[in-house]
Nucleic acid binder design. Structure first.
Lengths: 231, 231
DNA sequence: GCCAGTATTTATCATGTGATAAAGAAAGCA
DNA sequence: TGCTTTCTTTATCACATGATAAATACTGGC
C-alpha cells in the first residue's frame, strides 16, 4: 500500500505509532495528517471519506477540521505538496545547457524527472485530478508544455543545426509529445494499471529518446513550417 | 458533455425526450438506461449517484433497480458494453496478415483501434476502472499484450528476417509498449487531461510506428535473447 | 369498456457523509 | 499546586447514498 520510493510518504510509521490521539504539536500533527492524506487520497481518490482518513492517521475525524477548514482545503494542500513543491526549475536549465550534447541532456533529464513522478502517489493523484477536471491538472500540463516540451523543441533545432528563431510550432511539439508520452506511459502501466513494475525506466526512456532523435532529424525541418498554429 | 464519436452514446436525445417516465418496453428502457449510465459514469466515475443518473435518464431512481439488481450489476453491464463487446478479433488477424507489409499493417491497425478507443467514454471509464483496481482493467491489458503486442513482436521478427521460433521476450514487448504507449497517450491527453483535441491521430501514430520500426531494426536482435523472463 | 399485467412512482429505511459545538484531557507556567 | 491554554474527543446535525416495499398509472387483450 505504501510506496517506499515516494519521499512524501516514505517515512510514515506502519499504521499507528502509539495509542490514538497522542498529543502533538500543531506543526507535527498537520504535516503528519497531510502525509497520510496524500497516501490515502492516492489510493481511494478524492471521494474517500474523512472518517477513514482519520482512522488511518490515528485521530478522530473532527480533528481534521482543526487543521484544515474543509476537505477541499485539505485536497488543495495535497496538490501543493505533490505537484507544485516538487517541480524543479533546474529541469528547464538542464535541458538548455548546450555544453552537454542533447541526447545526454535528455537522458539525464528524464532520469531525474521519472524519479520524481514515477511513484504511486504522484501518478494516481494526477489521474484522479485529471478525471475530475480539476484545474491543477491542466495547469501542470501547460507547465510541462511551456517549461519542458517547448525548450526541447528549441534545443532539438539547435542540435540539428536548424534555424532557431521562429516560434515553435504545434507539429514540433507533437513530435516531442510522442517521446514524452512513451516515457510517461511506463509510469501509467506501473502505478495506474497496477502492472508488476519490473520495467527498467532508464533503459526504456533511452529507447524513446533515440526514437525521437532519429525521427526528428527527418521530420523537424517540415514541422517547423507546419500550417498549424503556433504554441 | 456528449461525444458524437462514441457509437454507444451518440444517438441519445439531448436531455429528456418527453415528460418523465413515459412508458417503454423493458428492452428499450434497459438499453437506454445502459447508454445513459455509460455516459454518466464516464463523466462522474463510479461514485456517481444513482439519483443523478436517474434524473439524466428521465426516470426515478428506484426504477433503475428494476432493470439492474444493484449498482454493481449496472457497472458490470457498462464494462461489458464498452470493452468486451467492442473488442474485435479481426485486429489480431489483421496484424498477422503477411500479404501486407508490416508498416502498412500497423498503420491500418492503429487507425482502426484508435477509432474505437479514442472517445471520451472509453478512455475515461478505462482510467476510472484502473484507479479502482477493478479486474476488468487488468484483464483488458493482458488481452492487449497477448492479442496485440505479442503478435506484433512475432511479425516484427518476420519483417526483419529474424528467426521467429523462440518465445517472445519481455524486452521485445517493452519495445512495442514504447510505440503503443506513445499512440495511446494521445487519447489520454485529449480525453483524460481534457486538452483541446486538435491532434491528427493517424499522422502521429504514423510517426510512432516509424520510430518503432527504426529502433526495432537495431534493437530487436539483442532483445530476442534478453536475460529477462519470457511472456 | 373493462380488467389483468406491468412499467413507473411515492414513501421510506439504514447507513454514510462533511461539518459544527461543546465537553474532556494533557501540557506549560505561576 | 492550581490555573490557563489548547490539543483531542464525544455527541450531533443536515444531507446524500444504495436499496426495498407498497401504491399508482399506463397498456394491451378480451
Amino acid at each position: 500500500m505504501e510506496d517506499p520510493l515516494d519521499p512524501l510518504t516514505a517515512d510514515l510509521p506502519a499504521a499507528k505509532p502509539g495509542r490514538r490521539g497522542a498529543r502533538m504539536s500543531p506543526e507535527a500533527r498537520k504535516s503528519d495528517l497531510l502525509a497520510r492524506a496524500i497516501e490515502y487520497f492516492s489510493e481511494e481518490g478524492f471521494d474517500g471519506g474523512t472518517r477513514a482518513l482519520a482512522r488511518r492517521t490515528g485521530i478522530t475525524q473532527p480533528l481534521i477540521y482543526r487543521y484544515f477548514p474543509s476537505k477541499e482545503d485539505l485536497i488543495n494542500a495535497v496538490y501543493e505538496a505533490v505537484y507544485l513543491s516538487q517541480w524543479k526549475d533546474d529541469w528547464t536549465a538542464q535541458l538548455c545547457d548546450r555544453k552537454v550534447p542533447l541526447p545526454e541532456r535528455l537522458t539525464d533529464f528524464y532520469h531525474d524527472y521519472t524519479r520524481t513522478i514515477f511513484n504511486r502517489t504522484w501518478m494516481r493523484i494526477f489521474f484522479f485530478a485529471g478525471l475530475k477536471g480539476l484545474d491543477i491538472n491542466t495547469r501542470y500540463i501547460n507547465r510541462v508544455i511551456s517549461h519542458l516540451l517547448v525548450p526541447i523543441c528549441r534545443e532539438t533545432r539547435a542540435h540539428l543545426g536548424l534555424p532557431s528563431d521562429g516560434p515553435v510550432t504545434e507539429s514540433e511539439i507533437e513530435l516531442v509529445w510522442v517521446m514524452h508520452g512513451a516515457i510517461f506511459y511506463q509510469g501509467i502501466r506501473e502505478h495506474v494499471y497496477g502492472l508488476p513494475g519490473q520495467i527498467d525506466h532508464d533503459r526504456t526512456a533511452a529507447v524513446a529518446i533515440r526514437m525521437f532523435l532519429a525521427v526528428a532529424e527527418t521530420d523537424f525541418p517540415a514541422a517547423m513550417t507546419s500550417p498549424l498554429t503556433e504554441a
